[in-house]
Design a protein around this nucleic acid. Structure first.
Lengths: 127, 127
DNA sequence: CCAACTGTAATCAAGACAATTACATTTAAG
DNA sequence: CTTAAATGTAATTGTCTTGATTACAGTTGG
């Protein structure tokens, strides 16, 4: 996404993007699909196809990207069945769900404070 | 840890703890080692052995437990080598490290606000 | 028409991690 | 002192996740 934000006009192919993160084009395309679903980018098929940002980099927050591509929670909850004889065990799922949920919100709040434009600015900086 | 905090006097064996989270005693013992290293609990070998909290539940924060047992970062950084020809690619590791670091701090700050005592209180509550 | 793309499914390989087994060591209790 | 019940810890196995890869149908600009 930072690469796309770096030259917001350009339509960049999955091949080029994959090379820049040193992975396979198909992996990138799968991510691009998720980002498109979130309406962060638009993609074009055919020759000279590829992806391009749909919003200005200063209107895209990291939380948007996080929500689009990250499926697993920061704190996963134990899905095994509780021990019926144990009062603590029986309550833990609901208790930990609450902790997990609020932690997720803390992360999202933090990521709401960072824009793609900021990252691009860092690309231009010295250090 | 909530189970230990529920009856802070009792020395509880890995067998009992494992049953309450529906897993294997050895898995629990490995976690207990990490918690002991963090000085959150003490363990006793031999018959009638097991684990017990070393501090009062209201002095143990979830961040302490998180630091003790969680090794993987919330946002892992891409460890592959960058594409030398690409300016963005070359800068991304340092940029994302910064994002990952601050996100980690956000999580830890949140977890610093929750104590084991609070979780125990929830165990006692109706809903 | 064709070359260069995307979209997508299917398969494969690698790595992570829990579960399990095994056993040496420790300790309380009888 | 002996024994039963624990921990500490290594080794192994199985499962699951995930990225990499291959393959191919569909799309589009030149």
């Amino acid at each position: 996404m930072t690469a796309l934000a770096f030259s917001p006009e350009e339509v960049m192919g999955s091949q080029k993007l994959a090379a820049s993160v040193n992975t396979n084009p198909v992996v990138v395309r799968r991510l691009l699909l998720a980002l498109r679903r979130a309406r962060l980018i638009e993609t074009f098929a055919g020759k000279r196809g590829g992806a391009r940002l749909r919003k200005k980099p200063n209107r895209i927050f990291l939380v948007d990207i996080y929500d689009a591509v990250e499926s697993r929670p920061v704190i996963p909850i134990n899905e095994r069945k509780a021990l019926k004889e144990c009062h603590v065990s029986c309550k833990m799922k609901s208790i930990m769900s609450c902790v997990a949920e609020s932690t997720e919100q803390a992360v999202r709040k933090h990521l709401r404070g960072i824009t793609l434009a900021q990252l691009v600015r860092k690309v231009h900086h010295r250090r």
